[in-house]
Design a binder for these strands. Sequence first.
DNA 1: CCGGACGCCTGTCGGC
DNA 2: TGCCGACAGGCGTCCG
Length: 271
Amino acid sequence: MPELPEVETTLRAIVPVLDGARVAELVVRRNDLRWPIPSDLAARLEGQVVQRMRRRAKYLLADIAGGTLIVHLGMSGSIRILARPMTAGPHDHVDLRVEGGPWLRYTDPRRFGAWLWTAEPAERHPLLRGLGPEPWDDVIDAAYLRERARHRKVPVKAFIMDNAVVVGVGNIYATEALFRARIRPRRSAGRVSLAEWGRLLDEIRAVLASAIASGGSTLRDFSSGEGRPGYFAQTLQAYGRASMPCVACGRALGEVRIGGRSSVYCPHCQH
DNA sequence: CCGGACGCCTGTCGGC
DNA sequence: TGCCGACAGGCGTCCG
């Protein structure tokens, strides 16, 4: 399930299917996702060629003549590729059939995801407008983070999960990056040193890249577009390991809640 | 402006 | 074994 590596993994799976392909049919079984799926979405898409599939933050974007399809996987969404139509289950809310190709099936038990249309450039859509840079954007470095964090009392973990600062850092990878950078999640962002920002940024990038390289995490049931499970979950050192021994010092990991999200850390190694 | 809480919805897991 | 509450990867909105 979707943090940025899972979205990127999904993108890589569907790019070969959708890039340059024509949409033959869109079947919407339930339209009550986080926002209603526009009733005219099928009419907008059917018969049109997907000029390019891309990702911005955790949004999947399909550029099509006249606008862009915006897809978000929410907390529990996934997209699978079906070679042939199969009976839809109760959570299979949307199917997209590619002309002369397979079906894409969108499954989302919690229905926090979104399928939206925008006629403007997607970057100007209200959901995308306020997004900060991608984790690998050159504008992000230790100085950028320190500057953005000046006078901010918010816990550093909440700060790096703030999409206006940097996109794509969800709860799992924030927890892991802070553990690896040896910074306590509750530290005020404004009190993190330049050297620590440098370490943290390196670890954010490393943990995201490693997760992408292994196809995304599998916490419950995320699987890539091809239906293969991701193998990154077993490499998590902090997330989901509260009260278990720290891989570095062997002492029990602690857990706090930050912004309502569980945050595991090592009281001995992280400062 | 900032920080924190809430809610959307369903499935799963742990504790009793 | 069965039930019930807590919690789950996101994120927009509201409130103080």
